[in-house]
Nucleic acid binder design. Structure first.
Lengths: 294, 294
DNA sequence: ATCCGTTATAAAATTAATTTATAATAGGCA
DNA sequence: TGCCTATTATAAATTAATTTTATAACGGAT
C-alpha cells in the first residue's frame, strides 16, 4: 500500500472535496477517486458515502476509524524523516525554554565545547508546552523542560534532574522585605508582576492562589526576567519566580514560601520513547546528566 | 512510499540476508536490493553497511532508527486492517479472561441478548496479560480485564467497574474454619492450592507473602476454580481467591482478610485509545457499564 | 433546458516495481 | 593459485501500478 494514498485520504477527510484535494496535491481529480478506491479495496470496506443529493461527502464509521490510523502513520513517517535528517547531519536538536537556557545551559554548553561536541547541537527555543509537542513531532530530539508536576506522557521519556521551590521576590523597600519566609496567603492584596508566557510558572501560581482563595491583582506580565526584576525593584509589584533567576541584586529581596505541599519548578531531560540513541547522542545525554544532576 | 518496502526492510533488519528475505516474501533478490535503495533515497541516508568481508550486514544508526518507525507503521496498519474487518462484519471482539467470563459475563450476555446485540459480540478468551496485548494489537476491540493495580497503559483506556478483596478459602474441617476473619500472616506454615495461570491472583498473593516475610508452600496449582475448590474441600491446602467464585459450597469456608492495604481484584472495561467507537460499539459499552457498574 | 460543480469511468500515457540474466566481491578450500 | 560458494549489485526487459486525458453521469440552481 502506498502512503501517498493515505495522505490523499487524510486530506479528503479534512477537505471533503475530491477536486480540492487533488488541486492541493497538484494532481488531477481522478487520481483521488482512484486512491480512495484502492483503499476501499485494500480494506474491503466503503470509506465514504457520496451523497450527491445534498452535495456533501459522508465519512463512514470505517472511514473515521481509518482516518485515525492514517494520521498516526503519516505522523510516524514524518518523525522518521526528521529524525533521519538530524542523524545524517550529525545534528542533535535540543529544545530549551528560555529560562532553562539561561540558567542551566551555559554550564552544559561549556562542557560540551570542552569535549568538542557543541557543534553537533542545535538549540530550538520555545515554551515548555510548545517544545513538548515539537519533541513529540520529531522537530527536536532532546529537550530540557520545566514543569510544575513530574512529566509523564505517552510517547516521551522524562528524567528529572532538578527541582526548585518557587520564591517570592519583593522590592527592598517593600514592607515584607525584612522577612525571610512568608506564607503565600500573606500576599493577598499585593500587586503582582509575572511571566507572560511561561506555562509552568502560571500553573504553579494559579494553584497557590486557588488554594488560598484569592484573585491575584496582576498589574503586568513580561516575558523577560530582567524586566520583571526591574519592575519589582521599583516596587510596581511583587513576583513569583524560582531562584534560578538573577539572585545578585541588592534592590530585590527573595522570600521563601512556608506553605506545605508547595508546587516546584521541576526540570527534566526529555526524549521520545521511539528515539534510538546513537553513540553521539548517548554521549551528549551523559554530559547533560553529569552537568545537570550534580 | 510503499509500505511493502518497509515490510521488506523490517524483515531485512531481522534476517540480515537479502536473499532469505526475498524468499520469505516470494519475490526475487533484486527486489529487496531495490526496495532498500528506494528507502535510502527517500530518507537520503545509508541504512546498511554491506560488509562482505566478514559476510555480515551491519545496520547503521539510521537503519536502527528507521526500523523502530517501520515496526510502528506496520503495526498500525495491521491494527487498521483488523479494526476495519471487525467493523464491516459488524462484529465486536470482546476479550474475556476465564474468571471474569464466568462471573460477570452471564449478566452482560443476558442483557445484550434482550437488546438483540449479542450476535454482534464475539468473545476472545485468554489471560489478562495476553488479552491486554491482543487489545493493543487490534485482535480485540474491547476487553474486560482483571488486575491487582489500576490499569494504566500508553495506548489503552481503562475504566474500573468493580473491585473485590481477595479471600482465603479453607476446608470446613480446617482449624481456621471457625474463624470469620484472619490476618494473612496467620497462614504462615499452611499449604496452598492456587491458580496456575492467573497473573493477577499471583501478583496479589506474592505481594502478601513478601510483605509478611514467608515463602508459601504451594502444593498444587490448577487453572480451574472447581479443581481448586475440590482440593480445598479435601483439605489438601487452603486457597487465595476472590469471592466472585463459587460461594455455595458447605464443605469450604471463606475467610476475610484483616490486613491493611490489601490488594484487590480490580476489574476494568478496556479499549484502545485509537479506537473510534461506532454507534453499536457505544451501545455495547453502555450495556457493559450499566450491567457491570451496579 | 442548460449550466455548474461535483465524482466516476475508460483508455492512453507515464511511472514504478519486479524479474531475468549476469556481474562483482570475497571467503573457503583443494 | 584457481575454482567454488554465498553473497549483493546492476542493467535491460517485463509487468504492474499510477496518473492523466477526455468524457460521462449526476443532481441542484438559474
Amino acid at each position: 500500500m502506498n502512503t501517498k494514498d493515505l495522505a490523499y485520504f487524510d486530506q479528503l477527510i479534512k477537505q471533503k472535496n475530491f477536486s480540492k484535494v487533488a488541486a492541493s496535491f497538484g494532481v488531477t481529480q481522478p487520481t483521488i477517486t482512484m486512491a480512495v478506491k484502492r483503499l476501499e479495496t485494500e480494506f474491503n470496506t466503503k470509506l465514504f458515502l457520496r451523497d450527491r443529493a445534498h452535495h456533501e461527502l459522508i465519512v463512514t464509521d470505517s472511514g473515521q476509524q481509518l482516518a485515525v490510523h492514517a494520521q498516526s502513520i503519516l505522523g510516524e513517517l514524518d518523525i522518521a524523516h526528521q529524525e533521519l535528517d538530524h542523524l545524517t547531519q550529525q545534528r542533535i536538536i535540543l529544545g530549551l525554554p528560555p529560562i532553562i537556557e539561561n540558567h542551566y545551559f551555559p554550564r552544559v554548553a561549556a562542557r560540551l565545547q570542552e569535549l568538542g561536541m557543541l557543534e553537533n547541537i542545535q538549540t530550538l527555543e520555545g515554551g515548555s508546552v510548545w517544545l513538548r509537542n515539537a519533541l513529540r513531532d520529531g522537530q527536536a530530539d532532546i529537550a530540557l523542560l520545566g514543569s510544575a508536576e513530574p512529566l509523564s506522557y505517552q510517547t516521551l521519556l522524562a528524567e528529572e534532574f532538578d527541582r526548585k521551590p518557587f520564591n517570592i521576590f519583593v522590592s527592598a523597600q517593600h514592607p515584607l522585605a525584612k522577612r525571610k519566609r512568608i506564607y503565600f496567603s500573606e500576599l493577598k492584596g499585593e500587586k503582582f508582576v509575572l511571566f507572560t508566557s511561561s506555562f509552568v510558572h502560571n500553573t504553579a501560581f494559579n494553584k497557590l492562589t486557588r488554594r488560598n482563595h484569592f484573585r491575584p491583582d496582576v498589574v503586568f506580565r513580561a516575558a523577560d526576567t530582567h524586566v520583571i526584576m526591574n519592575l519589582v525593584a521599583e516596587n510596581v509589584g511583587v513576583s513569583f519566580l524560582t531562584d534560578i533567576v538573577d539572585q545578585h541584586r541588592h534592590d530585590v529581596v527573595r522570600l521563601e514560601l512556608l506553605d506545605d505541599e508547595q508546587p516546584a519548578f521541576i526540570t527534566s531531560i526529555v526524549t521520545r520513547t521511539s528515539h534510538v540513541l546513537t553513540g553521539t547522542q548517548q554521549r551528549v545525554l551523559k554530559v547533560l546528566r553529569e552537568t545537570l544532576e550534580e
